[in-house]
Amino acid sequence: MHFVLASQSPARLAVLRAAGLDPSVVVSGVDEDAVAAALTDPSPAELVKALAAAKAEAVLGTVLGTHADAVVVACDSMLSIGGEMVGKPATPEIAKQRWAAMKGRSGELLTGHTVVRVDGGQRTKEASGAQTTTVRFSDASDAELDAYIATGEPLQVAGAFTLDGLGGWFVEGIDGDPSSVIGISLPLTRRLLAEVGVSVVDLWRSPTS
């Protein structure tokens, strides 16, 4: 059975590879702003789950055309800070504003997942869920944050920070699942795979692969 990751995120791919999987990657190309705009007053969990479901749906046609047996996993992450849900900052200026609001405070990183099972070239089962992890940010100096934003890293990630990259210097700690902060929750993915009848251990690479 093929494991298909509906994401171009190198961090998500790295988490899955380190956890014993060898995913195929199919990028969804979903217009996240359009999906969010179509929702009526969603909760944070509903928002990230809807975005993940849209990404899974977008790649399903490609997967059905190439794999008879597969699981498609799609994810979306956003940060809730001060009651506002934010994704990737579009510019360095927005990233700087985000960090001005985040530093010295805590935020909630929400990750939504959708898993779709394909059997015999047909979509058969689907499961979705969301994970919330509290992130405690350091009171970094303006000079440190200017240097971090200048690297370009925070422009590419939800909430304008990473846990597994340069942004890790400015995270004091987390309460919850670290893999969900990186982009894909291993515990949640395992549970959703089980809901569609797939054991994660059956997807692990063999030791010789």
Rank of each mutant, 00 (worst) to 15 (best):
T91M: 13
Y148F: 12
S77K: 04
R12F: 01
I184L: 15
V63G: 06
G167W: 00
A11Q: 09
V171I: 15
L186N: 06
P89N: 05
K88C: 10
L163C: 10
P42I: 06
G176F: 00
I182S: 01
F137K: 02
M102E: 12
G61D: 07
V35E: 14
V27H: 01
S9W: 07
W204Y: 15
W169Q: 14
A194V: 05
G104F: 05
D164F: 00
S28E: 12
R98F: 15
S180C: 14
K88Q: 11
D142C: 09
T40G: 12
L16I: 01
E172M: 08
P89V: 00
K96N: 07
A130C: 14
L186P: 08
E153W: 00
S199V: 07
P207H: 01
G121T: 03
A127G: 10
V135N: 05
T162S: 15
E57K: 13
F161W: 10
V26A: 15
D41W: 03
S209I: 03
V48Y: 10
D41C: 05
T132W: 01
V71G: 09
K49Q: 15
E108L: 14
T151D: 06
G176W: 00
P44A: 14
S206T: 09
Q97W: 00
D202Q: 11
E84H: 06
T132F: 03
Q122T: 10
I81R: 04
E195S: 13
L163R: 03
G197K: 09
A45G: 13
A53I: 02
S106Y: 01
G87N: 08
G82R: 09
V48D: 14
P10N: 11
V181C: 03
V27E: 08
A130Y: 04
G82Y: 02
S206G: 10
R191M: 13
V118K: 02
G176M: 02
G87F: 03
P154I: 00
V73R: 01
S9N: 14
G173C: 07
A58I: 08
I81M: 15
G61I: 02
G168A: 08
V86Q: 06
D76L: 15
S180M: 12
T133A: 08
G176Q: 02
T40Y: 11
V201R: 13
D177I: 03
V116Q: 11
T151L: 07
T111G: 12
P23H: 11
R190D: 13
A38Q: 12
S28Q: 09
D142I: 04
I184K: 07
S209Q: 13
A52C: 12
W99E: 04
L163S: 05
Q8R: 10
A6V: 05
D76S: 15
E126Y: 00
